[in-house]
Design a protein around this nucleic acid. Structure first.
Length: 489
RNA sequence: GCCCCCGUCGUCUAGCCCGGUCUAGGACACCGCCCUUUCAAGGCGGAGAUCGCGGGUUCAAAUCCCGCCGGGGGCGCCA
């Protein structure tokens, strides 16, 4: 294969969608696998809907995901001069013509076709306007679009790298618009010019573009450009098997970022939607993905987006892949950046976390890293390490009632004595003291631990208490126990 | 309606091109057991797909051929 060049061409009309992100990833992986280059091009010919904020956000999220490009970003809105040259060329050579039909007229046509149950196609009314008529219309200042003259009866056949041979009959669509009445060129047109000029060898995009391809091939031919290879990716589906969209919940990369997902995990997961490595290895770094990725291994059925598996995979990155320092730093950064999006309770914890030195946070992370799946879940999990003054959870209250407050008190008091007597108090001492209490009061160890858990954290479940004691130490343990005793009264 | 794409456990998928090794493999989720001071994590095991359906071809089909059905996408002066 010659020098590979791919492109990612988002339109800045919304946040970076998971489906588009996956297209970007595949384009990137493919280019890098073949030692090629990736171009980023912003498709903002639609002035109405394109927003600079979205462009900025998309770029940011791409970088966050770890996708970097070698050229661009180019903006189509800045290239209108270039496109104009080609419009003139097409007009001159008779491949295109001015169409003075109004939008109302066309709308009526469409309606009529629908009513009669036949497919709509532009009727070619302005195709054969005489020179005089055109001149007259022009002189009158009538607005016009420019349409491409679709040759009659052609069959377009191309070999899609994923779908295989695909055939379209050109008669299924009429002469299509390439320049709007406001003078701005349309996607189907500029995409061809840009891909050609920029030397794109492989056009990788969503399957929703498949039916645009024959129109574009016609344009390539008319313009005398070489035709690139096409690869149409199956789309991503929601749980109900329709195209993944907002009504399926979070669909933007940004939302997952806010929800505490790691870019590596999201990249990894998205890569596995419709593609599978030959060796079956699922947890893959960017480098490993590049090494293994090829278009041939793309499955051609659409894939349902499975949030649960993403969640699991993010957990794998948290507990197994990232090294401790890195993970800790990410937790801190996340809390700084998105802390205000957390629940009020988690925000309280987050505030405390950010007050602590890195080393302390790191120690906590090491104790709880196998029990949280997203960065967002960290404060909840790590709460006892940062908040000495808790409020009892309803479950905890219930349990104390059940065990009777007297028993809880006895356990706590005896345990407290032992803590006070100890020189230092860490995990080992904790276990030893708890067992002694159990023996001396003739209570089941489970009962003792349950009570102490509530006394120390206010919760009925959470991290190992020995781990907690290890980190917070003797003074904090005493403080909590004494406070619990006052809570019992 | 027309055009195009797709169809293996609930989900992601391996296998399909080059028929037998597939009593269809792995992962997530699910269930059980173990570990255990709880929740997780981890270890072990289990259930789960007559390979959309129906015909062929063949000694043999998830794998090749045909038809049907089902799902999805596209039919714009959106991309």
């Amino acid at each position: 294969m010659g020098k590979v060049k791919t492109r990612f061409a988002p339109s800045p009309t919304g946040w970076l969608h998971l489906g588009n992100a996956r297209t970007a990833i595949f384009s990137y992986l493919f280019a890098k696998h073949h030692g090629g280059r990736l171009v980023l091009r912003i498709e903002d010919t639609d002035r109405e809907r394109s927003k600079k904020e979205f462009e900025t956000a998309i770029i940011e999220d791409l970088k966050w995901l770890g996708i970097d490009w070698d050229e661009g970003p180019y903006r189509q809105s800045e290239r209108f001069e270039i496109y104009k040259k080609y419009v003139d060329l097409l007009l001159e050579k008779g491949y295109a013509y001015r169409c003075f039909c109004t939008q109302e007229e066309l709308e009526a046509e469409r309606e009529k076709a629908k009513k009669e149950g036949r497919p709509y196609r532009y009727n070619g009314k302005c195709r054969h306007l005489s020179k005089e008529e055109i001149e007259k219309n022009l002189k009158e200042g009538k607005p016009y679009t420019i349409r491409f003259k679709v040759p009659d009866g052609r069959e377009i056949v191309f070999n899609d790298l994923i779908k295989g041979e695909v055939r379209f009959n050109v008669n299924d669509f009429g002469d299509f618009v390439i320049v709007r009445s406001d003078g701005s060129p349309v996607y189907n047109f500029v995409v061809v010019i840009d891909d050609a000029i920029m030397g794109i060898t492989h056009v990788i995009r969503g399957e929703d573009h498949l039916s645009n391809t024959p129109k574009q091939i016609l344009l390539y031919e008319a313009l005398g450009f070489p035709i690139p290879k096409f690869a149409h990716l199956p789309i991503i589906l929601g749980e109900d098997r329709s195209k993944l969209s907002k009504r399926h919940g979070a669909v933007s990369v940004r939302q997952y970022r806010i929800d505490g997902y790691l870019p590596e995990a999201l990249l990894n997961f998205l890569s596995l939607l419709g593609w599978y490595p030959k060796d079956g290895k699922e947890i893959l770094s960017k480098e490993e993905l590049i090494e293994r990725f090829d278009l041939e291994d793309i499955h051609n059925a659409p894939a349902v987006f499975n949030r649960e598996k993403l969640h699991w995979m993010n957990g794998v990155y948290i507990r197994e892949v990232l090294d401790l320092d890195d993970l800790t730093q990410r937790v801190i950064n996340y809390l700084k950046q998105y802390g205000e999006k957390l629940s009020p309770e988690d925000q309280k914890v987050a505030k405390e976390i950010l007050k602590k030195p890195f080393g302390y946070v790191k120690e906590v992370v090491s104790k709880v890293r196998d029990s949280f799946f997203t960065l967002k879940e960290f404060p909840q999990r790590a709460k006892p390490f940062f908040l000495e003054e808790y409020t009892l959870s309803p479950e905890a209250e219930k349990q104390i009632e059940k065990a009777t407050p007297e028993v809880a008190k006895n356990i706590t008091q005896l345990f407290l004595e032992k803590v006070k007597k100890a020189e230092t108090f860490g995990g080992e001492e904790f276990k030893k003291a708890a067992k002694e209490v159990s023996k001396e009061l003739k209570l089941k160890p489970g009962m003792v631990f349950k009570t102490l858990r509530i006394a120390l954290t206010g919760e009925t479940q959470g991290v190992g208490l020995d781990l907690l004691a290890d980190v917070v130490g003797k003074d904090s343990v005493i403080k909590r126990l004494e406070r619990f005793l006052t809570l019992l009264k």
